[in-house]
Simulated scan of single mutants.
Amino acid sequence: MNKIFMKAIFITILVSSYTIFPAIENAQINDDLQVADNAKYKKSDIHKKEADSLESRFIKSEDKNLLARLVHAEAKGEPFAGKVAVATVVLNRVQHKQFPDTIKEVIYQKNAFEPVMNGSIHEPANKESYEAVEEALQEQGKDNELLYFYNPKTATSQWIFSRKVVKKIGNHSFAI
Rank of each mutant, 00 (worst) to 15 (best):
I103F: 06
L146V: 09
T12H: 05
V166A: 12
N2H: 04
S44Y: 05
Y130T: 11
E134F: 04
A36N: 09
F80C: 02
Q138A: 12
V15P: 00
N2P: 01
V86Q: 00
N26P: 02
I24W: 12
D37Y: 06
I121G: 09
I176T: 04
L91M: 05
E145Q: 14
E55D: 14
D63H: 08
V84M: 07
E139A: 12
E123Q: 15
P22S: 09
N171G: 07
E131Y: 03
A23N: 00
N38F: 15
D32N: 13
A73G: 11
V106D: 03
A136V: 02
K142D: 08
N144S: 15
Q109W: 05
S157Q: 13
K104H: 14
R93H: 09
S56H: 14
F21Y: 12
V35L: 05
P22A: 07
D101T: 09
G170W: 04
N26R: 06
A75I: 03
S129L: 03
E145K: 14
L147A: 06
G170C: 10
V165C: 04
E123W: 13
Q158T: 13
I20R: 12
E128R: 07
A155L: 10
F161Y: 11
F113T: 00
K7E: 11
K64C: 11
I46S: 09
Y108L: 10
A85N: 01
K7Q: 12
T154H: 07
D101W: 03
L137D: 02
K3V: 12
S56T: 12
T154L: 08
R163D: 09
I103R: 02
K142A: 09
Y130N: 14
P79H: 11
N171V: 00
P115W: 00
I11M: 11
E74S: 15
H172F: 15
I4D: 13
R163L: 11
F10T: 06
I11F: 08
D37L: 13
M6Q: 11
E105P: 04
A23H: 02
I29L: 15
